[in-house]
Design a binder for these strands. Structure first.
Lengths: 348, 348
DNA sequence: CTGTTAGCGCTTTCAC
DNA sequence: GTGAAAGCGCTAACAG
């Protein structure tokens, strides 16, 4: 536990500004915060003095005396991944424009999260919390609410609190239907499971089975590889899938990173893409276009911005226009998918 | 500007804990903060009560009365890039373990930074600032110091304040010498320039010329492509380079992302790697292994952790063990580099 | 509309 | 060792 070295204090206090402007403390306070009940002329005078001495209120004092912290907590599991980084960047942007400070909490695993929610009688630290792509469970949620802390989810799934996300099922269907339309029938799935929450099948998984069902293709468990998230895991999954007796002609990966791994395996195996095997991912990671990977794009930055705006409404006391926002996804066809070889298509 | 809805307050105050433990306010305060001058028995009693009621001090009140904010500002230009995200994740981790809160500032452009440093009579917001991979200019620096705010740089270049980085020149030499050792003589460079600070040549650029000089190869300006950062730009640069009359047999890209772009161009051009052209990057982005890209690895997480530790020392008032830390880099040979074709090698 | 007066919850002298 | 008292800089109620 660091004990900071004492910094010198030299800044002006509200009292100084008030005096300089020739008004009382209360008036100065109101003027600075654009509270009603101050003569316009007076307000201008105060504002001018404050500006001149580049005065800023002490957030600590303001918080101690008042109610809000003007700070929001941003909980994110994996900052090093593109999706999360982009989301955070977007959220931070709109929050900062609204003069709010962002307290970052990189909560990699369940343990971190637990600690956060436990240590967070932190209504003492933030007015609100934005969680990126993971659910807040009932108990924690109740406590947050009882503390008066707002919660919104960005990029997660449906929730009881306000959220913004994409329809993962629809995204999955976009990918699968593309493959099926191309003529593929034997389609493998590389499915990543979150170690912390191996919960019920995700939308992207359900889309797989649904698409097959609609196409009249029986589900073959041998064709799905369940692995942890990550390119290397994706690569291994691909090895397993391609080692199958009756190997798939196409692969549906739950995310682009997984797909990149699959592509490497294919390349190393000497398979040509998409002639020998098609690969489709989800996300439209910036690298996807560099790898010529067909994928399903989801608007990440937009989701983040929307979630932050939602938070802003909540903080203002007004219900947000929408309690839930679902952005749509879009198929982006590139060079990694194509029709199966005739031989393969005929086989069944 | 959001006006938060008033949350209810219900938490215990230090006074309550003191009373519950049957001690005075001052004693309770000292006990909780492990200050000397409290009987061990007393301290235990206070600690026990605090634990029992899961009491936490109000950071605002503590700050207002005391000196530190227990918060550090983290300035990052591009959260969505792997390097930055990873760095931030690492920094956040050690700071959090030290009970410090991290205030995130995504400062994409010069304008954002300027605003930060202007608005930051924020000694009122943070005790210290960590900047990721960009320099703090003299004027801002002076102000920070005069406010008693510590500054450390993570992943940047040499600075007058404490920093941690890698030797970009050495990294560049590793990449270049690898190419030269393989027999390449006509080597192109894809160099990214930061729009905000098109400052003097970076270490990675200087390494290019130095390596050529040592190898006795004359510098040919036609072989270097200066572009903004980004895979797509890397791809275009590669197009230009490969369109050259006397095209290079190898490409040295300033970063892996650039190299990925180059690889795509090569692939689209029908060039085989590394037979027709070798490509080497810098960073060892996780995707590099998936693309079988030869690169120079730099330890990102370690740099972040080291910078954060440095900050901790500073905050404790003690000089850090080292005011500057330079991590070493390492060549990682993969499948994207190989000797030039004999024909090519002979040509000169 | 404006000035004054209480605290907000803690840290820090300063006596005991 | 420990308790009492004096603020830290501000907001919010309350009188004018």
């Amino acid at each position: 536990v660091p004990r900071p070295s004492a910094p010198q204090r030299a800044n002006l206090r509200l009292a100084d500004i008030a005096q300089l402007a020739g008004v009382g403390l209360g008036t100065a306070s109101r003027a600075l915060r654009n509270e009603p009940g101050v003569a316009e002329a007076t307000r201008q005078r105060v504002l001018a003095v404050a500006e001149q001495y580049s005065y800023v209120v002490s957030p600590e004092a303001a918080r101690l005396a008042g109610r809000s912290t003007a700070r929001v907590g941003l909980l994110v599991p994996h900052l090093s991944r593109w999706f999360f980084g982009t989301m955070v960047e977007a959220i931070d942007g709109v929050l900062r424009d609204a003069q709010l400070d962002v307290l970052l909490y990189a909560v990699g695993d369940l343990e971190d999260r637990r600690r956060f929610f436990k240590d967070l009688p932190a209504r003492r630290k933030v007015d609100a919390v934005i969680v990126v792509a993971f659910p807040v469970e009932g108990d924690d949620l109740v406590r947050l609410h009882s503390l008066g802390v707002h919660v919104v989810a960005a990029g997660g799934q449906h929730a009881t609190y306000p959220y913004v996300c994409v329809d993962d099922f629809a995204a999955g269907r976009l990918a699968m239907d593309h493959l099926i339309t191309l003529g593929h029938r034997r389609i493998g799935m590389i499915e990543s499971v979150d170690v912390d929450q191996p919960r019920q099948p995700t939308g992207r998984s359900r889309a797989y089975r649904a698409a097959l069902r609609v196409a009249g293709v029986p589900f073959d468990p041998a064709l799905v590889a369940r692995i942890p998230w990550g390119g290397e895991h994706g690569a291994h999954a691909m090895e397993r899938l391609m080692a199958l007796e009756d190997r798939p002609t196409a692969i549906y990966a739950h995310s682009d990173e997984l797909a990149f791994g699959a592509l490497r395996t294919a390349r190393r195996l000497g398979l040509s893409i998409p002639e020998d095997v098609s690969v489709v991912g989800v996300d439209d990671h910036p690298m996807a276009s560099l790898a010529d990977l067909t994928t399903v794009r989801q608007p990440v930055r937009e989701q983040g911005a929307a979630a932050a705006s939602m938070m802003l409404s909540l903080l203002q006391g007004s219900e947000p226009p929408d309690r839930a926002l679902t952005f749509s996804t879009e198929l982006v066809v590139r060079a990694s998918t194509g029709p199966p070889r005739l031989r393969d298509a005929r086989r069944r």
